[in-house]
Amino acid sequence: MLVSLLLFTGVGIAGACGSVARYLLGRIIMEHMKGSFPWGTFVINVTGAWCIGLVFALAGQHVLSKELQTVLATGFLGGYTTFSTMHWEGVQLMRGGRRFQGIFYLIVTYMLGLSMEAVGMWLGWEITR
């Protein structure tokens, strides 16, 4: 009971840190990028997917404990990456007359996200072998 309470608190704090990281990184990227493509959320989601693959593989190889995996993956990376903002941006692009850019944005995020997740997982297995 106490352990799970501590674990959930850890997930909450890690998620809060992940949210702040997303907010700051998103702002920094959008300040440097011109145009309507949502680079901020794109970079955040793809890098977050890569990291969760790495964390999953390292936990599978017992480099990270299960508790640390929960705090990092469910907490930090869950707070860092976002689904809602991504779809909101995609739909806004489609409605704003940039239909193809909106569809392209969503498809590329999903495809690259899944690929990078697999790459992170592979890397985690390779370095612990």
């Binding site: 949210s19 997917a49 993956a73 990376l77 869950g78 903002t85 899944l114």
Partner: peptide, 21 residues
């Protein structure tokens, strides 16, 4: 930005899908 951004997640989605694959 805070609540809904952290509530929803893309990383777990990607991992769940890759694991199914």
């Amino acid at each position: 930005v805070g609540f809904i951004g952290a509530y929803t997640t893309f990383s777990s989605l990607a991992m769940g899908d890759v694991l199914l694959l």
